[in-house]
Computed example of a mutant assay.
Amino acid sequence: MKQNWSQETYIKAYEFAAQAHQGQKMPGSEIPYIMHLSFVSMEVIAALNVETKNDGDLAIQCSVLHDTVEDTGTTFDQIKTEFGESVANGVLALTKDESLAKHLQMEDSLRRIKEQPQEIWMVKLADRISNLQAPPYYWTQDKIVRYREEGIQIYEALRDASPFLASRLASKIEDYKGFI
């Protein structure tokens, strides 16, 4: 089977993200943040193995870089220079607009993601799959319920991009009820 992405492209993005996120930890843990990016990219790679029509390099680079603009000092222009305009636009679409009120951010994010190729949709599905693990100990029940509801919103908006990831997300959303 011909692979629709290259290891070199993945490694370049992974090294860039590891530098950008250096010293960051996953919320509520001592686990290096790069692990989250590994989990998201693993979900995307698993989908690409089944859904071979996609631009794997775009999907994988955006999966690894999706939080760089949002959570580090990395700029859109740095991503564009290093990885090209398509990747930079994808990362920007996956970046929350923190100038908006919190309750408006997800709707805005989903609107911007839907303007991008479906590979970017896949990253958002994979990101929420990765994030629907046991919630941090300090989250309230209300926060846990809202997070699950956001997962449903993401699923409904983006499920057409990847039947494989949509199925995984639906399962994670169902399992997440156990934390409520």
Score class of each variant (00 low, 15 high):
His36Ala: 05
Glu43Asp: 09
Glu30Gly: 06
Glu43Pro: 02
Val50Lys: 02
Val40His: 09
Asn49Lys: 14
Val40Pro: 06
Ile34Trp: 01
Val40Phe: 10
Val44Tyr: 01
Pro32Met: 01
Glu51Ser: 04
Ala46Pro: 01
Leu48Tyr: 00
Ile60Arg: 08
Ile31Ser: 05
Pro27Tyr: 02
Pro32Gly: 11
Lys25Phe: 14
Ala46Trp: 04
Gly28Asn: 04
Val44Glu: 07
Leu58Ser: 08
Met42Ser: 15
Lys53Asp: 14
Glu43Lys: 14
Gln24Ser: 10
Pro27Asn: 09
Ile31Gln: 08
Glu51Thr: 07
Ile60Trp: 03
Gln24Ile: 11
Asp57Val: 04
Ser38Gln: 10
Ser41Met: 15
Pro32Phe: 06
Pro27Leu: 04
Lys53Trp: 08
Pro32Leu: 08
Val40Arg: 06
Ala47Gly: 05
Asn49Val: 05
Leu48Pro: 12
Met26Lys: 13
Asn49Arg: 13
Glu30Val: 05
Asp57Cys: 05
Ile45Lys: 12
Asp55Thr: 07
Ile45Trp: 00
Ile45Gly: 06
Phe39Val: 07
Ala46Ile: 03
Ile31Val: 15
Asn54Thr: 14
Met35Gln: 14
Ala59Ser: 07
Pro32Glu: 08
Ser29Leu: 09
Pro32Lys: 01
Lys25Gly: 09
Tyr33Met: 04
Asn54Cys: 15
Leu58Ile: 02
Lys25Glu: 12
Pro27His: 00
Ile34Cys: 07
Ala47His: 06
Asp57Gln: 02
Thr52Asp: 07
Gly23Phe: 14
Gln24Ala: 10
Glu30Gln: 14
Met26Thr: 10
Leu37Cys: 15
Ile60Ser: 01
Ser29Phe: 06
Pro32Gln: 07
Ala59His: 04
His36Pro: 05
Asp57Tyr: 05
Glu30Lys: 13
Ala59Gln: 02
Thr52Ala: 06
Gln24Lys: 13
Ala59Glu: 03
Ile34Gly: 10
Ile31His: 09
Ala47Ile: 03
Glu51Arg: 13
Ile45Gln: 03
Pro32Ser: 00
Asp57Lys: 06
Ser38Trp: 12
Leu58Val: 07
Val40Asn: 04
Pro27Met: 01
Ile60Gly: 00
Gly23Asn: 06
Glu51Ala: 04
Glu30Phe: 07
Glu43Met: 03
Leu48Phe: 09
Lys25Ile: 08
Glu30His: 06
Leu58Tyr: 04
Ala46Asn: 14
Ile60Ala: 13
Val44Lys: 07
Tyr33Ser: 13
Pro27Gln: 11
Leu58Gly: 03
Ile34Glu: 01
His36Ile: 01
Pro32His: 00
Gly56Tyr: 03
Asn49Ile: 05
Ala47Lys: 05
Asp57Pro: 00
Gln24Cys: 09
Asn54Met: 15
Gln24Met: 15
Val44Phe: 01
Ser29Cys: 01
Gly28Gln: 06
Gly56His: 03
Ile60Tyr: 00
Pro27Gly: 02
Gly23Thr: 04
Ala46Val: 10
Gln22Gly: 02
Pro27Lys: 04
